[in-house]
Nucleic acid binder design. Structure first.
Lengths: 154, 154
DNA sequence: TAGAGATGGTTTCATCATTAAACCAAGAAT
DNA sequence: ATTCTTGGTTTAATGATGAAACCATCTCTA
């Protein structure tokens, strides 16, 4: 009777949501991208209960999304840092962000925006494309059984 | 003491997760993209409790992600259909899917793949880009206060 | 057209997850 | 040496989720 387990599905969406599909994990990742590295920074930034944060951080360490590293400033403590796997969640956050900007804000309402570090300009919109780069509409996609890599061989 | 409300934040990620950040909503959207249109189709496809599905579907109708339309086959009942707002969640699902494919599957393990309806070829990878189309790495992004549209004016 | 089954839920109750608050050990600051 | 901060854990209450039973309406078949 425990919460449904989607981790064994052969659908990558199901398996991903089983790992990062809860209320807090992606918010923690967001704050990590904003520079949060310590327990108290996450806790203050998100306003979630400490025991919940504790459980989440431990699970994210187990899952290899975060890792503990020696303090950046040379302190004796250790800090939470996104792994490469965690850094790759950025695309998901950007997709979520752009959808929210489009559908959850009124015109003129203030919002946080993402900008490229280099030019300071807002980043471009994500586009669904075919292999050769042409745009695809959301409804022009099918799902079928497969194995990654096979379609790249021939 | 109710669950934390992120709906009022000025961060689009927080606001989005408040609406679609629970365990089931994106799975329901996934099945809708696969062609599910009726209560029993969602219920069988996902294996979730009927009362939970009931609450979720109603909320998704309220949020304008789904709408009820006359049955496609001319039957007397009504069916659930993705709105445009719902269809735009596809990018998020693709981002989640590609991350899962990269980090949650072993080599050679069978998985569902997304293909373009037109050419039957797996869709291309999502890329983070600057406004002018150049690729950006996940760590080369900052977040700042802003208002949508202002940066497009000058 | 009567009966049987499928559909689309609602209700009830048990269990799991989240929350707030209190507590505590170890490290950092004074 | 003492006080404050950090990074948690524990406890108890409440909210969300799950399984199963129940029910009114639609739909199919004889």
């Amino acid at each position: 009777m425990r919460r449904t387990d989607l981790g064994g599905a052969n659908c990558p969406i199901a398996r991903s949501l089983d790992e990062i599909g809860d209320w807090w994990t992606l918010m923690i990742v967001r704050d990590a991208f904003r520079g949060a590295r310590r327990f108290s920074e996450f806790q203050r930034g998100l306003g979630l209960a400490k025991n919940i944060l504790s459980v989440r951080l431990r699970k994210m360490l187990d899952d290899g999304i975060l890792e503990l590293v020696p303090a950046a400033g040379g302190g004796a403590h250790r800090e939470y840092q996104l792994t490469d796997k965690g850094l790759r969640l950025r695309v998901i956050l950007v997709a979520i962000r752009q959808w929210g900007e489009d559908h959850l804000f009124e015109a003129g309402e203030p919002m946080m925006v993402m900008v490229g570090k280099e030019d300071g300009q807002p980043i471009g919109r994500l586009r669904l494309t075919s292999k050769d780069g042409r745009s695809i509409d959301p409804w022009d996609i099918d799902v079928k059984d497969g194995v990654r890599g096979t379609e790249d061989v021939g």
